[in-house]
Write a protein that binds this DNA or RNA. Structure first.
Lengths: 217, 217
DNA sequence: CAAGGCATGTACCGTACGGTACGGTTCGTG
DNA sequence: CACGAACCGTACCGTACGGTACATGCCTTG
């Protein structure tokens, strides 16, 4: 890795096209299908170019992660005044987006790849994936629940811990199960709404609980 | 796979010793270290015996999963009368055990292996791992929260869903992060207690909430 | 047009792995 | 003791992959 992919994740259009083909190859055939010769054939480029651009196979994979992360952009529109209904709506939207992202083909394939490489020492692939893939969506959720607290709708001491709780309520073990090959079952919308309801029960203020009809029996 | 490892997961002592060495090899060196020649060398047996006993490499891995599952036995002692304190204690114990199991070296190595193989079609490794590794601990938790409901301490409609909630509160994304190579941070006991507190807040009856001092502010 | 950079395609090399075959050894059994 | 089964160690085979070298062709630039 000659250039730091954390600060220089930009490639030429031709290279982006190659990375896209590589991702497609990975999604379709799994890790063992991601051979340098296979990528070169699928992208109509030469292996020599691959090594010139990305250094080695690990560099190619790192570039694929950066490329995919650059495609998944999440918009965080805030500044608007939050009330119980809008907070809930935003939380449900976030939950659904999170479930969609995690269950996506490319996300699952890249996560599988990073997991399988993580046993090798010095492989920063997992770190890279967490940093690139999660940072955006994590910041969006953190900003949302912080705004909820500022608006007097949520109560918690540690924002990070509250976010972890929200994440666990939404995802549970679904991500690992999908990584292991299980197909997602159940409706994402329903799952998201239930998770948000539980989260509000745990961290909503009295005002929120009353307005949302979540007062404990 | 000539014999069904779901119903016949028993092997001779010699074979068990070989499987143990194979697991050690996998834990130490990751998936790429788990070569048939390496296992044979580490276990002082011949490759021919490996293929005779386990069929092929996949059969060996399946046998490793069954062997490891046979070692991790979880005791579910029930029948005692549950009160709020004992329910809470059992839940915390379960949560700590779950975190211990998931963060164990062998568990992580096997999960990484199953995840990396899950993209290949027809690979029932993930299914096998979920079935063997989780069944015991899942049943224990399910029995516990069902007993809690029968004792009038918990309230929920769907036991499976309640368990998923408990699981998510305990683990959140820690499992995936560990699979990606991150070292677990924080105290398991504290994490377990917080998760159980949240679970009781969500699914405890009025009696439970009052006795546990969890009445919402 | 000439020249040089850049990309492609192919051929090649070394290595490592899954799986098989075979000779030698140990051990239980009639 | 003789026999056979099981097993060990090793050598072997075919294949596939990562990485490199080289010849050809395109496209810009002076």
């Amino acid at each position: 890795m000659s250039s730091d992919p954390l600060t220089a994740p930009e490639f030429s259009p031709r290279q982006n096209a190659v990375l896209g083909q590589a991702l497609r190859l990975l999604v379709d055939g799994g890790e063992k299908a991601l051979t340098t010769a296979g990528v070169a054939r699928a992208a109509n480029c030469s292996k020599e170019s691959l090594y010139k651009w990305f250094g080695d196979r690990d560099g190619l994979i790192a570039a694929m992660i950066a490329f995919q992360a650059s495609k998944v952009r999440t918009f965080e529109r805030d500044g608007e005044r939050l009330n119980v209904a809008s907070l809930r709506e935003h939380l449900v939207m976030f939950a659904k987006d999170l479930l969609e992202v995690l269950s996506g083909d490319v996300s699952l394939a890249l996560n599988r790849l990073a997991v399988s490489q993580s046993s090798r020492d010095g492989s920063k692939l997992g770190e890279l994936l967490l940093e690139h893939g999660r940072r955006q969506i994590d910041r969006r959720a953190r900003a949302l629940i912080d705004a909820g607290r500022r608006a007097g709708l949520l109560t918690f001491d540690d924002g990070e811990e509250a976010y972890r709780t929200l994440y666990g309520l939404i995802v549970s073990d679904m991500h690992v199960r999908m990584l292991l090959g299980e197909r997602p079952q159940g409706d994402f919308t329903q799952r998201a709404e239930k998770a948000v309801r539980a989260f509000l029960t745990l961290h909503g203020t009295a005002k929120t609980l009353a307005e949302a009809g979540l007062a404990p029996v």
